Amino acid sequence: MVVSRKYATLHELQTVYGAEDLYDFLEIVVVDAANERTLNERKD
Rank of each mutant, 00 (worst) to 15 (best):
L13H: 00
R42H: 13
L10R: 05
Q14N: 15
A34P: 04
V29T: 06
I28C: 11
V2T: 01
D24H: 12
T38F: 12
D44K: 15
V30N: 06
Q14E: 10
K43R: 11
R5G: 06
V30W: 02
A8P: 00
V2K: 00
N40H: 09
K43V: 12
I28K: 05
L13Q: 01
T38S: 07
V16R: 00
E20G: 07
L39P: 08
T9M: 00
V30T: 12
R42G: 14
E36R: 06
L26F: 01
E36V: 05
D32H: 03
E20F: 04
N35Y: 07
D32P: 06
V31W: 14
A34H: 09
D24F: 05
A19T: 11
D32S: 05
Y7L: 04
N35D: 08
D32T: 04
T15I: 03
R37S: 10
G18W: 05
L39I: 14
R42A: 14
D24Y: 14
Y23F: 13
L26C: 03
H11L: 09
Y23K: 15
H11Q: 07
R5I: 11
S4K: 10
E20H: 06
D24M: 10
A19V: 15
L10G: 11
V3K: 02
E41K: 02
E36W: 06
V2D: 02
S4L: 13
V16K: 01
E27R: 12
E41L: 15
N35G: 12
K43Y: 07
A33C: 06
S4H: 14
A33R: 05
I28Y: 10
K43H: 06
T9R: 02
